[in-house]
């Protein structure tokens, strides 16, 4: 699966548009394709608990609230304790 730089762990975000490739040290565009073999960054959109309802928007199935609290696919989830790949 081809990943955008901004969806990889090797990408160090500088701003919304660009970041550093940690392996090469180069500044790269956030939306450019990352080289093959780069690691997937945990994000809600990759989580089994994420239920998308509209583009980039959904709910988090493990939310204890009723109705379930929103989630958005692009949120980074490295600190989410219940992220499920």
């Amino acid at each position: 699966m081809t990943l955008a730089y901004r969806d990889t762990r090797e990408f160090v975000p500088v701003d919304a548009d660009k970041g550093l490739d940690r392996l090469t040290g180069k500044m790269v565009q956030a939306d450019a394709n990352a080289p093959a073999g780069y690691t997937k960054l945990p994000k809600c959109k990759f989580c089994k608990n994420y239920q998308e309802e509209a583009t980039n928007m959904g709910v988090c199935a493990v939310s204890t609230m009723e109705p379930k609290f929103m989630a958005y696919g692009d949120m980074i989830a490295v600190t989410c304790e219940v992220y499920a790949d």
Partner: peptide, 23 residues
């Protein structure tokens, strides 16, 4: 520009995040 939305003429936000901000 591109997938970056200007907010208040100062901050850039990824287009993917804007619906979440509004909600």
């Amino acid at each position: 520009f591109n997938k970056i939305v200007s907010i208040a003429g100062k901050f850039g936000m990824r287009q993917e995040e804007v619906p979440a901000l509004l909600k």
